[in-house]
Every structure is written in C-alpha cells, then in structure tokens.
C-alpha cells in the first residue's frame, strides 16, 4: 500500500467516524462544520478538474456553485407551493423532491457552464481568467436584481430536500449524504482523468499546438471538461443551499471563486483529493483565527502568500511524500 492510499484510507475512516465523535463530545456544531467542509471540498475538487487537468484557470467557478444553489432554492420553493403542474405535484407529494431538485440543479449548472464555456474557451491565458471572472460578475448582478427570488436579500428555504431512505433534515444523515456525494465525485473524476479523455486534456494543457497537430479537437474536450466541472460545482451549490437552508448572490461573488482557488492550491493542484484537504485547512484556519482575532484576514493574507511561495505543490503532496518533491 502506498503512502497515498494509506492516507486516503485513514481520512475515509476518520470521516466516517466523525458523527460518532460529535455525539460523544456533545458538539453537534462539529457535524455542521464538517458537512460544510465536505461541500466546499466538492466544489474545490471540481475546480481542480479545470485547474489541474485542463489548464483552464477559471476565476468564476463560484458562478456554477451559485447557479446550483439557486436552482435548488427556486425549485424547493415551487415544489412546496400549491397550484403546481400535476406531474410536478406528484413528485412534490411523494416526498422525493430531492430526486428532482438535485439532478436539475446539476443540469442547470452544467448548461450554464456549457454556454459560458463555449464563449470563454475562444480565449486563452489571461484573457480566459478575466472573461470567466466577468461572466461570474454578470451572473452575480443578475441574481442581485432577481427580485422574485429575494434579490440581494437571498432566499430562505424552509427545510431540506426530501430523498428516499435518508432524512436530510437530520444532520447526521445529511453529513453522510455529503460524504457519499463527495466520494462518488472523487471516484468518477479520478476515473475520468485517467481515461483517454483525461490524457488528451493533460496533453493539451502541456502543449496545445502539439495536440492539435495530432488531429485532436482540443476545444471540444475542454468544453466537455468545463461542463462537467460546472455541473459538479452545481451539485456542491445545491448541497450548500440545503446545508444552510439559504441562498444568496454572495455565493456568486468573485471572492468565493478566489477562496475555492486557494483551497485547490493549499491542498495540491491536480490531485483531486488535495483540494478537499485544502478546503478543510482553509475553513478550519478561518474558524480558528476568527476565534482569536477580529482581524483574521491580516493573518490569512500573509499565510496565503507564504503557502504560494514555499508549498508550491500544496500541502497534501507535502504530507504524503514527506519532504521530497515529485511531479
């Protein structure tokens, strides 16, 4: 067993035992915090698909998280409302609203990513960074002025989505559901990046001209990856909406895009599992610093700079491989 596998196994065991520990210590907040870490981990890992495997530096990933969250919030609102189309009403009554809400949220985010990606991928390099940012800002202002759904005030959901077998309103169930989503995503994504599809993408990331010379239509592959990453971020968004039972345009703000990037880099870019670890470190640091000082950002900022300068490949590879560095 490699160190990496050992580490992942350890992490999985720890994570699955966490609810028991939370109950033991009588600290239900721990569970909620851990669920949030898992969700942000999912969002960060989906961004890692773009950053680490597609060489697409998107500074607008929060947009898809936000769209997923809003799709979940809006559907949740309407599924609970009277006077629904009969087909939808059937779903709403049968206590499985989540089966509609979650897939539709993913679909909405994927569609948005498909359209925005198609436009953005016409550009490369720094232009790409900027245009993804611009689209996210555009959507941010769109949701701010979307009065029907709360505008800047955001949208409060009463209760969480309903699924068969699990009761998401129960924090332990919700935690395990998030863990399930995250692990499912990580497994699928790691299969994806090790497939022919992933190889081509990494090839194009290294040298686009060469890939094109080999007759590969790189644009289509990148767009597919962009869409997948967007959809996965949408899932994270839908979970986040359920977690806090609240959605607001703040989710689409560019600072969240920045924070997701920070998580990816902290954990280790191009490692898929690393960003989850990065999300945990970032959120715990924020939580911890916040307890000791009001000015936590004055510490977080320099920490980030140091992390960039000295932990080039992120913390997870550093942890797994000890001090030596490898590709």
């Amino acid at each position: 067993m490699t160190r990496k596998q050992l580490f992942l196994l350890l992490a999985a065991v720890l994570l699955s035992l966490l609810p028991a520990a939370a109950h033991l210590f009588g600290n239900p907040y721990l569970l909620s915090l851990a669920s949030r870490i898992l969700i942000y981990g999912l969002a960060a890992a989906s961004l890692d698909l773009l950053l680490g495997y597609g060489a697409m530096i998107s500074l607008g990933h929060a947009a898809y998280v936000g769209i997923g969250a809003y799709a979940a919030g809006i559907l949740h609102l309407h599924l609970g409302a009277p006077g629904l189309a009969p087909a939808l009403a059937l779903v709403a009554d049968s206590e499985v609203s989540g089966l509609v809400i979650l897939p539709l949220a993913v679909l909405a985010a994927s569609l948005a990513a498909l359209v925005i990606g198609a436009l953005c991928l016409r550009t490369t390099g720094m232009h790409f960074i900027m245009i993804t940012l611009a689209f996210a800002q555009m959507l941010y202002y769109f949701f701010i002025s979307l009065e029907a759904y709360g505008g800047d005030d955001g949208l409060s959901l009463l209760g969480r989505s309903k699924l068969p077998l699990v009761n998401l309103d129960n924090d332990t169930h919700f935690y395990y559901f998030c863990l399930f989503c995250l692990i499912a995503f990580l497994l699928l994504a790691s299969r994806l990046v090790h497939s022919r599809f992933g190889l081509i993408l990494r090839g194009t990331g290294d040298n686009e001209r060469r890939a094109r010379g080999l007759g590969v239509n790189t644009g289509r592959y990148r767009l597919a990856l962009f869409t997948i990453a967007g959809g996965s971020a949408g899932l994270a968004g839908a979970l986040l909406a359920n977690h806090s039972e609240f959605v607001s345009p703040g989710l689409l703000n560019w600072t969240l895009s920045g924070e997701l990037m920070v998580m990816v880099l902290l954990g280790g870019i191009g490692t898929l599992f690393g960003p989850v670890f990065g999300a945990a470190v970032y959120l715990l640091l924020e939580e911890g610093l916040n307890m000791y000082t009001e000015h936590w950002m004055a510490y977080m900022g320099p920490l980030l700079v140091l992390a960039v300068l000295f932990a080039r490949n992120g913390l997870l590879p550093l942890l797994i491989s000890g001090r030596k560095r490898h590709g």
């Binding site: 950053l51 530096i57 500074l59 390099g125 720094m126 960074i129 920045g258 990037m261 920070v262 880099l265 870019i269 000015h295 936590w296 950002m297 004055a298 977080m300 900022g301 320099p302 920490l303 980030l304 700079v305 992390a307 960039v308 300068l309 080039r312």
Partner: peptide, 22 residues
Amino acid sequence: RHLDQVLATFGVILFCNEMTRI
C-alpha cells in the same frame, strides 16, 4: 503559473484591506 500569482496577490488584498482597517 498564473494560478500562483492569482493566489499570492489575493493574499496581498486580504492583508492590505485588513491593515487599512487596523
């Protein structure tokens, strides 16, 4: 990578904003 630059300067923003407040 551009990514590193984005992150380091993001850190600088956090720091500068908080310092002006302090």
